Computed example of a mutant assay.
Amino acid sequence: MSQTTSPTARLMDGSALARQMVEEAAERAAALAARTGRAPCLATVLVGDDPASITYVRMKRNRCAKAGVRSRHIALPADTTTAQLVDTIGELSDDSGVHGILLQHPVGPHIDERAAFEAIAPEKDVDGVTAHSFAAMSLGMDGFASCTPGGIVRLLDHYDVDLTGRHAVVVGRSAILGKPVGMLLLGRNATVTYCHSRTTDLAAHTREADVLIAAVGRPRFLHGDQLKPGAVVIDAGYNPGNVGDVDFPSAAAVASLITPVPGGVGPMTIATLLTQTVDAATRQLGAAG
């Protein structure tokens, strides 16, 4: 870890837990392949040639290989239309050889990203991006969690953070992070407050948080003087320069538990994706096995 914490805060090591999750996913994938003759398969779809997106997809495919999950990559040109992307995802949804689908986002301003997400079959939505998955998260139904929120909850569980009756403040309201993580926390009996860039007197809310989820997408946006002493701080941001949405040194002097950037939430996102891909394949191949 490149960051140093004061004695006040204990570091939440997402990298270590993610390695454990990937090892467990690999064991389950191998057992499934031995039983059915078919390994789990994740299809990744990338539109355009954004360097960051290419790097993310490559990293996810490498992790797939380590976990015994086959990957199928579909690279589409930057001028791909919404209709073409929806057709491609629809074909993957109908393909019995594909068990999970990941559309790397963003896809470009000319594409209706929501329409593309909704083309993913619910049983293959291992990234938890469809309306069906959000409803499942909100209503406590069987389905797939958005990977970053799902990874955050797993991390909180690993560090024995009891959410019952705790006040959780989510700073951010994106469809794949802020909103779903609030639903998952609410499902664990936390009292949840959503904040965002237009919230009046943000610090008044964050200072009341027993658990703070920073997902606003602004580097070092939140500082230690905006935190409740002893709070659990989850930094889900990742900005240029390997910094999160929280000013780590000042926050670490106040928090009881805190995630580093990198090495906190990021590895948990990919580990959750792989775990859910194996889950999806198990459900789809279970009857055949």
Rank of each mutant, 00 (worst) to 15 (best):
S2M: 10
S2P: 02
Q3D: 13
T5V: 11
S6R: 09
M12D: 05
M12G: 06
G14F: 11
A18Q: 04
R19G: 11
R19N: 12
Q20N: 12
Q20K: 03
V22L: 07
E23W: 07
E24D: 14
A26S: 11
E27I: 05
E27M: 04
A29E: 12
A31W: 04
A33E: 11
A34S: 05
P40L: 15
L42M: 14
L42W: 12
L46G: 01
L46H: 03
A52P: 01
S53P: 01
S53F: 08
N62M: 06
N62W: 07
N62T: 07
A67H: 14
V69F: 13
R70N: 05
R70Y: 07
S71H: 10
H73P: 10
H73T: 15
A75E: 12
A75W: 06
A75M: 09
L76I: 11
P77I: 05
A78R: 06
D79K: 06
D79R: 05
T81K: 03
T82H: 13
A83Y: 02
L85T: 10
V86G: 11
D94P: 05
D94R: 15
D95L: 10
S96C: 09
G97P: 03
G100L: 10
I101K: 01
I101R: 03
V107E: 02
H110G: 01
E118Y: 13
A119Y: 01
I120F: 09
P122S: 06
K124R: 05
V126E: 05
D127V: 09
G128W: 02
V129M: 03
V129H: 01
H132S: 00
H132C: 00
A135P: 00
S138H: 02
L139P: 00
G140A: 03
D142Y: 03
A145S: 12
A145F: 02
C147H: 00
I152E: 00
V153K: 00
V153T: 12
D157H: 15
D160F: 07
V161P: 07
D162Q: 08
G165W: 07
V169C: 04
V170Y: 09
V170S: 07
S174G: 08
A175R: 01
G178Y: 04
K179L: 04
K179Q: 08
L184K: 01
L184C: 06
L185N: 14
N189M: 12
N189L: 14
T191S: 15
T191G: 14
Y194C: 03
H196Q: 08
S197K: 12
R198K: 09
T206H: 07
R218Y: 04
P219I: 00
R220W: 05
R220G: 00
L222P: 09
G224Y: 06
G224C: 04
K228G: 06
K228Q: 05
V232I: 13
A236V: 12
A236R: 06
G237F: 09
N239R: 02
P240N: 13
G241Y: 12
G241Q: 09
G241H: 14
N242M: 08
N242W: 08
V243T: 14
G244D: 11
D245V: 03
P249C: 15
A253T: 11
V254K: 06
A255D: 15
A255G: 13
L257S: 05
I258P: 09
T259M: 14
P260C: 10
V261H: 03
G263R: 00
V265S: 04
G266S: 10
G266Y: 08
I270Q: 11
T272F: 02
T272K: 10
T275A: 15
A280H: 04
A281E: 06
L285D: 00
G289H: 05
G289I: 06
